[in-house]
Structures are given as C-alpha cells and as structure tokens.
C-alpha cells in the first residue's frame, strides 16, 4: 500500500517562449489518494501542467510542492531521483522501445530506481496479467496492439508502487475496452493510496475522477 501524497502549486507560471504564458498563476492543491483530472481545451496547457507537477519542467515563477519540497528548487539529479523512485508515468502513445521486449519495457523503471530487476520480474509478469496483456512477455511492441501497448505502459507505471502516477492522455487513442482497462488500473491504484493525475479531454476519465483542475 502506497501512502497518499499531496501536491500543491502556488502562483505557478510557465511558458515555452518569452512573453507567451501557458500556465498563469495557478494555485491548486491536489489531494493524495485521488484521481485528479486536468482538463481544458486543446492547447490550453494540460500536458504542460502535468509535466510541471512531475518536475520535468521548471516554472518561471511560483512553486510545486511535493512532500514538503519545492520541485523548482531541486536540482535536475534530485528531480530525476524523485521521478525514478516516487513517480510513475503513463504516456499518451505508450512510449515503448520497439527493439526491446514487453517485459523489458515494464521493468525499465527498476533501472533508474536502482532496484534489482530480477526481484521485480514476478511483479511485472503479474501486472501484465492483471492488465490483460495476454502476449508472451518476450513480444516486441510492434507485435501487440495500441491498446495492449498502453496497458503495458500502465503496468510500467505501477511496477514500483509509486506515490504519484502522472498520465498524459492515457486513453486518447484507445478503444472502449482498453480505456476501461487503463482507467480501472489507475482507479485501483488511487484506491490503494496512490495519487493519480491525468491530463485528459476524455469525459469517461473526468467522470471517474474525484478531483479536477481546469486550465484555461
């Protein structure tokens, strides 16, 4: 069981180009152990906010506080450690290495968290089973469907029992069955104490989330 981790932003401001603000003075508290949806129209900055909360972007001003620490004040190495050991990621397009096996993809977080992959192997296989990925673990991403690939991506995010899972449009390209599988797994993770933050424009995701941030 993971512990509930809250994230707070204060006067968060960011843009990719000077003078063009994408997130402007956002102050928000994200409760731990909930599924929080970041919504907004296309190009409004949903993914940008997600990456700011994950410490992958450095805000122009304001703060992102996780577990009492301001991510903006951490150096790159410390933020990388945080992502490796505390956060999980689900990308929009699964982002699996086409040359590595499905099992390798699920085990990838162990590389950066300095955990032995041998121990995590059983859990990886169990997660693949739980996510309904019924293909041999040696299969390459090119041999599975997009829905299965996204489920593999979710399994990868869940592998190390992260405190927070960030998901960027996880159901964007999926059929209903795959969307349900992905959402079910993320919801179950939140019920287990994990904070799940999803950037989405999918109403199904919004309807199942307990928290919501709308970016203009």
């Amino acid at each position: 069981m993971t512990r509930c981790a809250a994230i707070e932003t204060a006067d968060l401001t960011f843009g990719y180009r000077r003078g063009v603000t994408v997130i402007d003075g956002l102050t928000q508290a994200i409760r731990g152990g909930e599924v929080t949806a970041i919504t907004g129209r296309s190009g409004s900055g949903k993914s940008t906010l997600l990456y700011l909360l994950a410490g992958m972007l450095t805000p122009w001003s304001g703060s992102v506080v996780f577990d009492g620490s301001d991510l903006a004040k951490m150096d790159d190495h410390a933020r990388s450690r945080l992502r490796a050991e505390t956060f999980g990621f689900v990308f929009q397009d699964a982002a699996l290495d086409p040359r590595r096996s499905v099992l390798d993809a699920v085990l990838e977080p162990t590389l950066y968290a300095s955990q032995p992959s041998a121990k995590a192997r059983d859990r990886a296989l169990a997660l693949l089973d739980l996510m309904g990925v019924d293909v041999p673990p040696e299969s390459r991403p090119g041999e599975i469907s997009g829905g299965q690939a996204q489920r593999v991506g979710v399994a990868r995010a869940l592998l190390l029992d992260p405190q927070v899972i960030f998901a960027d449009e996880p159901t964007g390209n999926l059929d209903n069955a795959s969307s349900e599988a992905v959402l079910g797994a993320l919801t179950a993770a939140a019920e287990g104490g994990c904070t799940v933050i999803i950037a989405t424009h999918d109403d199904r995701v919004v309807s199942r989330s307990t928290g919501r941030i709308t970016v203009a």
Binding site: D76, R83, A84, A95, E108, L111, Y112
Partner: peptide, 16 residues
C-alpha cells in the same frame, strides 16, 4: 530521441 526522452521522464539522470 524518443527513447532518451522516455528514459529521462522515467527517472534517468542526465549523466545516466
């Protein structure tokens, strides 16, 4: 480049 971006997102440091 996608691979390196993914690695960084999943926690690889620059030096990694």
């Amino acid at each position: 480049r996608q691979e390196f971006g993914r690695r960084r997102a999943l926690g690889a440091t620059r030096s990694d």
